[in-house]
Design a protein around this nucleic acid. Sequence first.
DNA 1: TGGATTGCGGTTATAAATGACCGCAATTTT
DNA 2: AAAATTGCGGTCATTTATAACCGCAATCCA
Lengths: 75, 75
Amino acid sequence: MKSNYNKIQEKFGENLRKIREEKDFSLRELSMKCEIDDSKISKIENGKFNIQLSTIIELAKGLGVSPKELLDFDF
Amino acid sequence: MKSNYNKIQEKFGENLRKIREEKDFSLRELSMKCEIDDSKISKIENGKFNIQLSTIIELAKGLGVSPKELLDFDF
DNA sequence: TGGATTGCGGTTATAAATGACCGCAATTTT
DNA sequence: AAAATTGCGGTCATTTATAACCGCAATCCA
């Protein structure tokens, strides 16, 4: 989408990784808790794409946090 | 996606509408503040689809709220 | 040092969001 | 009553996320 939108994807990814590491989950562990392929989670963490609401919800469920926590970073 | 995922889209939509009406914006007003067609916002409010992160960000920007406020409802 | 784990990049097909429109019925405003 | 606003549904082309895989280099660990 926007040229500068990648920045936001990257921040989202960093935040996701931070939360995952706090919980001490590996990509494969998290991938089993939500229904998302581990390679996809890796791509999301690296800001590779613009995920959908359903994916945010799934990730939050897998991590055991509230979805809004995944958006809790500076914009 | 999931069969019960529509529920979440609908809740997201309700929350979006609630915030928009609090701010007293019409669909067309909001559509000018973000870069989203008014008919699309209408569809989102009615839970018609699974929007992307970029769309959440745009809507939040247009509404002048934090993106996580758009996810501030019960799941 | 041999084996498992981990992060991650790539592939391909399919489904779905998006953008840019249009038009209209109902309500609101003048 | 006439004009404008509002919410909303629909179309169609294009882009993109997604699902379900595979394989590999690096790290971990027994």
